[in-house]
Design a protein around this nucleic acid. Structure first.
Length: 431
DNA sequence: TCTGGGGTCCTAGGACCC
DNA sequence: TCTGGGGTCCTAGGACCC
């Protein structure tokens, strides 16, 4: 059997752990730049407010709702996630973290145990030790465990833990479950299925295997099998697995038209990608940069530009990746466009300890020096705080009216961020 | 005025190889 | 005029997930 632990309204619950006064208050957490709603408390969901609603629309449509909004506080969420996972590791035979707020539990060697009772106890313990409310689904496959966790979340009668172990339970669970809520069935496939009269997970599981294979390919067939109770979807954990592509991209709080300002953003995203590469001990062979106009503003000229560059010898140094990104930016930049978003992607990722140098162009001395600079930057920033040391191009400049003085400013708007309660002592110092 | 960010896998089709 | 068979690698686009 496998279990799936899912934190309830994770981001909102993180905020509530340190603000118990908001336990019953409708709560939302916003995306970068306080753009749109990315997490909703139970009360907000009950009001029918959809995920992804722009924050300004929320304020317009629900002016007196008493909804409290938070900017996203990723340091807090990452730390709360680690706390929950560490409790799970102490209780379950094996734990695979699947996302920031979910983990699969491999429940081998627990035959004969009352799994429901065990699960209830586990959820209680997580809540007690971390303050995080979680729901647990237990079944014979990952897809069924996911389904069970949704039942556990939805119906208080399960007391946070739902087990699907008998054939009878499986059939009942399937027949009451909307097909679009099945893990692996997204919007597109749901529409196709509903068109042919398949509305529940039970309907889907009742289709002929060959038909499912033909219409929905291997991925659809796997989901179909998992619903029958035949495990065939492997889970890869978050930890230790090297990413194959790494992206850093952001929307800007305001639109930008100057190349100079775009450069600061692009340099920062490139530096961030380089850091992520070094953290997983990798190098990349390809850097891609892209810039986009504001797609919501149909009245303005639209432009999506992108370009890439391949290194003859793969690298992870900040200097090289930033330099390369800026060069691409200069090439794809078009004057007169109001830009709203930019990003950097690194790909062609391989282990840093197995670099294949270019036969003719590789300059070991140059590379060695850049590597040392990056290593020094990492050491300083890990001790003194992120971005204590950055390259000159990474600084966000704001010119004064007369153009004489330059001020360095923050790039992302987070007007309603909570303090970093669990990771900075200073968070508790008033004033 | 204000609209997020980061990933993976699969398939089809083209290029190329022997 | 006739024109095989089998395979790999790469890429773009689609679909999904959180």
């Amino acid at each position: 059997m496998v279990g799936l632990v899912d934190c309830d309204n994770f981001f909102c619950s993180c905020e509530r752990v340190f603000r118990p006064d908001l336990a019953k208050t409708p709560l939302v957490v916003l995306s970068n730049n306080d753009g749109c709603v990315v997490a909703r408390s139970r009360e907000v969901k009950a009001m029918g407010i959809p995920e992804g609603m722009p924050y300004y629309q929320l304020k317009e449509k629900y002016p007196d709702s008493g909804i409290v909004a938070f900017s996203s506080n990723y340091a807090l969420y990452a730390d709360m996630s680690a706390r929950v996972i560490s409790i799970l590791r102490g209780e379950a035979p094996d734990v695979i973290q699947y996302s920031i707020d979910e983990a699969f539990l491999i429940l081998e060697g627990m035959e004969g145990l009352d799994l429901h009772k065990w699960g209830e106890g586990l959820c209680r313990k997580v809540q007690k030790c971390t303050g995080m409310p979680v729901s647990l689904g237990i079944a014979s496959t990952n897809t069924l465990a996911k389904m069970a966790s949704k039942y556990a979340k939805k119906y208080p009668g399960y007391n946070k833990c739902c087990v699907i172990s008998t054939e009878e339970q499986r059939q009942k669970a399937l027949s009451l479950f909307p097909v679009g809520d099945v893990w692996g069935i997204g919007r597109r496939i749901r529409r196709k299925l509903e068109y042919i009269g398949v509305n529940t997970a039970y309907d889907f599981a009742s289709l002929q295997k060959d038909y499912v294979r033909r219409r929905f390919h291997v991925t659809g067939e796997r989901t179909w099998k998992e619903l029958q109770g035949i495990p065939c979807i492997e889970i890869e954990g978050l930890e230790g697995v090297s990413k194959k592509t790494i992206v850093t991209s952001r929307s800007f709080p305001e639109m930008i038209r100057e190349l100079d300002d775009l450069r600061s953003h692009v340099a920062n995203y490139a530096a961030r990608c380089a850091l992520k590469l070094r953290r997983q001990n990798s190098v990349c062979a390809v850097v891609t940069a892209f810039i986009q106009s504001n797609h919501f503003r149909e009245d303005l000229e639209q432009y999506d530009g992108s370009g890439y560059h391949s290194f003859s010898t793969p690298t992870n140094t900040t200097n090289e990746i930033v330099e390369c990104a800026i060069r691409i930016l200069d090439y794809i930049f078009r004057k007169g466009i109001w830009y709203k978003r930019a990003g950097i992607m690194v790909s062609g990722i391989t282990p840093a300890n197995a670099i294949q140098p270019d036969l003719f162009e590789y300059c070991p001395e140059r590379r060695r020096r850049f590597s040392e600079v990056s290593a020094a930057i990492d050491r300083i920033n890990s001790r003194m705080g992120a971005d204590t040391v950055v390259l000159g191009t990474q600084q966000y400049r704001e010119r004064s009216e007369d153009g004489k003085s330059i001020k360095f400013v923050n790039a992302i708007r987070r007007a309603m961020k909570s303090p970093d309660y669990s990771t900075r002592l200073g968070a508790f110092v008033v004033g």
